[in-house]
Design a protein around this nucleic acid. Structure first.
Lengths: 232, 232
DNA sequence: GATACAGTAATTGAATACAATCTGTAAACA
DNA sequence: TGTTTACAGATTGTATTCAATTACTGTATC
């Protein structure tokens, strides 16, 4: 959707990557001035990139208050994961109607990459895991579906950054392998089940944290940092 | 997603409305200068609006060539309609799991509005028909789903503008009524079938036109305007 | 009559400049 | 001591400006 060859594209792309890889954590302010300096461009150019990221839901752009990395609430998090289930279910259903051979071939190549960096380069590992899902969507041939999946996978990274304790265990490589096997067998039901439980696992690791299971419950969070108990 | 209170919002909103209502037809150029003049704002502000519309797929923003109303190809059109089926299926499935009473009440109120302007104010009629689908999505309570549906309904308007002969017959009001009835009965299967055939009907009216079933086939289109036959 | 080319006009890309708004701190006051 | 007000600094909103690219028009040439 983004036509490159403008100066704002590198800014957009770098910010996006940084947010997804959690180098820029939710809530971090993104001042136009300093970003422009680091990239050697003017604020006009930076702003252009920020607007795009705002529309995509990775950045929160408030009038007169500037931009910051979006902070999805727990409700939004559930909402996004539910949407993701819907979209990826569609992906699987479409793939199961197609010839599995070229699909499986491409997926296996990707899986090799994933295994290659497993346990070695965690940043790369995480990125590859996300790209597996985007690749699946692209293989359906539907540009708009791929676009939506791409968008929602990014937003899930943001959710992980916000709520998950451990980030590295985001996607299990074996689960990707299982899914490929189901697709190779043309077993639609199993493929669906694979994907569903896989995504559910990711969601659980992100959100199953009963202590602060209410959005922005400052009290609950702060209570863990309180030095001594108030009521003795 | 869009936070108003900036000067670019009215520009964005007007352009969006004009495109959806087909006052601005696909392919029409949108020069920053003249738009800025009509709204009394600078090009910076206009550009901001255009970027948003580009991300949403209503405007095509090409480097050094400016903006124009997007011209979805026939392939993209099918892609978008298929995606719409997926999203609205999800809407129905979610609504069927909820208490139908308040949902049906709200929908019936909307339906009354639709009937009120039927055959009188065609522009308003078309808008209300689209808003029925957006309302359905909003009733699920999922913001992201409502957002996607909103976006895709707009893009379908664009497709209609591009390919459909008659625009007024976009959505049948009776079909909306049938859907509401199915929801009221809690009949998920029937509701699903209703929505599916309803959307399929819209799609057919838009795209079932074998003559120019190839994207941008100027010859096929112009042939219909040719005064006499070339080959006697 | 068609094509190639040159020069000009129009349009966009991006930086700068100025106005408006917000944030944080400190002084004034209750 | 706690609250309000005022001011300074920082940051954003928007317009303006200049450079770069594209589109157009008329002319020359084949």
């Amino acid at each position: 959707m983004y036509k490159s060859s403008t100066r704002s594209f590198p800014v957009y792309d770098s910010l996006r990557q940084a947010i997804i890889e959690q180098a820029l954590k939710p809530g971090v302010k993104l001042p136009e001035d300093s970003i422009g300096e680091t990239f050697g461009v003017s604020r006009t150019t930076v702003r252009n990139a920020l607007v795009r990221l705002d529309v995509e839901g990775l950045v929160d752009l408030q009038p007169n208050r500037g931009a910051s990395v979006a902070e999805p609430t727990i409700e939004e998090a559930y909402d996004i994961f539910e949407m993701r289930q819907c979209l990826e279910r569609e992906v699987i259903q479409r793939l199961c109607k197609m010839d599995p051979k070229p699909i499986v071939k491409t997926l296996k190549e990707h899986l090799k990459e994933e295994e290659k960096y497993l346990g070695k380069d965690s940043t790369r590992s995480i990125r590859l895991a996300g790209e597996f899902h985007i690749l699946l969507a692209e293989l359906t041939g539907s540009k708009i579906l791929a676009n939506y999946v791409n968008e929602i996978v990014s937003r899930c990274s943001l959710i992980l950054a916000r709520f998950a304790q451990v980030h590295s265990a985001e996607c299990g490589v074996e689960e990707h392998a299982e899914l490929i096997a189901a697709l190779a067998d043309g077993d639609a039901e199993r493929a669906n089940a694979c994907m569903h439980s896989h995504l559910h696992g990711v969601q659980d690791r992100a959100l199953l944290n009963p202590e602060d299971a209410q959005s922005d419950n400052v009290a609950a969070i702060l209570s863990r940092y309180r030095p001594t108990k108030t009521k003795p």
